[in-house]
């Protein structure tokens, strides 16, 4: 088992290095950093001096190593557009995105798994069919349309909930949280629902199809032949056996929740990393893009590792063979 984990860790580091090199390539070659940093009227000599100062004359691999070294120290350079250190910009917006993603994931998992189990067990029931039909609509509706719909309904028409922003936040020093104020929580409802809805349908459909699959297996038939109660069969045996793939997908989905937050944050003007990133794409603000790329990949790879660890708790077979 340790060898397996070490290999996974090695793979994770490899992915991060690849991403860092891609980020560096973006940073170094896509758009000239010097031109982006100074105005039109700066002399060529001045530019050359800046170029030397920034180390752009050094060998490429030295530059790349320096770029990665700096990134490891949370130094991602200066935003072209905002003229501020990228780290500060992202640091100020990270809590908003993480809180949104957390709320959305909880929403998706807490509702998605029970619905999936239900529709899996009673596959031909009228309610299950209705839920499945509605879920197909959920998968097909673009996130931003869902957001707009919710805003029109609950903000514009009913005036129940705010349509944009985070509400009041409480500053805990390094972390500004919206969880502690009424307006913060109210402001969270619509964006979190918008962001979580797609994942909810995915989780539900996945749990359902896994349940259907598992309920057909020999060991479930054997459980029935032994006269175990439906409850024991469905929840003790079937659900547990669906968990490996479900945990994988949920792990990957948390990654895509952070990516989809870009859209939700744009619709709701939520002051998070996604909004910052989309502005960076619009303005070709490469340092922010590169930093965002690296940060999200660290998050994704981290989640993948955690998912891998969780396997070991769920499935004893992996502990022996290294993989399924």
């Amino acid at each position: 088992m340790p060898t397996h984990l070490i290999r996974r860790l090695f793979e994770a580091v490899l992915v991060l290095v690849v991403v860092a090199v891609v980020a560096f390539t973006l940073f170094r070659f896509v758009g000239d950093p010097v031109n982006q940093m100074v105005g039109q009227d700066v002399s060529i000599a001045e530019r050359e001096r800046l170029r030397r100062e920034l180390g752009l004359d050094d060998a490429l691999f030295v530059q790349c190593a320096r770029f990665i070294w700096n990134a490891l120290h949370f130094d991602f350079g200066t935003s072209y557009k905002f003229r501020q250190p990228v780290t500060d910009l992202i640091g100020a917006r990270l809590p908003a995105t993480l809180e949104l993603a957390f709320a959305a994931s909880v929403f998706a998992i807490a509702i998605g798994i029970p619905l999936g189990v239900r529709t899996g067990i009673h596959r031909d029931g009228a309610l299950s069919k209705t839920i499945m039909a509605v879920s197909l609509i959920g998968v097909s509706l673009p996130t931003f349309l869902i957001g707009i719909l919710l805003i029109y309904l609950f903000a514009v028409t009913l005036h129940w909930l705010p349509s944009y922003g985070r509400g009041d936040v409480v500053n805990l020093g390094f972390w500004a949280t919206g969880f502690l104020t009424g307006s913060g929580l109210r402001a969270l409802i619509l964006p979190a629902t918008t962001l979580g809805l797609f994942q909810l349908t995915l989780v539900m459909r996945l749990v359902r199809s896994e349940m259907l699959e598992v309920l057909r297996t020999d060991y479930i038939r054997f459980c029935r032949a032994r006269g175990l109660t439906d409850r024991a069969i469905h929840f003790r045996h079937a659900l547990k056996n669906t968990l490996v793939p479900v945990v994988t997908i949920i792990g990957l989905q948390i990654g895509s929740i952070i990516a989809f937050a870009i859209i939700t944050e744009t619709v709701f003007q939520w002051p998070g990393m996604g909004l910052l990133f989309i502005q960076a794409v619009q303005n070709a603000d490469i340092p922010i893009m590169a930093a965002y790329l690296m940060l999200t990949s660290v998050i994704f790879v981290g989640i993948n590792l955690v998912v891998d660890l969780i396997y070991h708790f769920i499935d004893p077979r992996i502990r022996v063979s290294g993989r399924l």
Partner: peptide, 10 residues
């Protein structure tokens, strides 16, 4: 490892 939308954006 990256969602499609993020790749497309990058």
């Amino acid at each position: 490892t990256f969602p499609a939308i993020l790749t497309a954006l990058l």
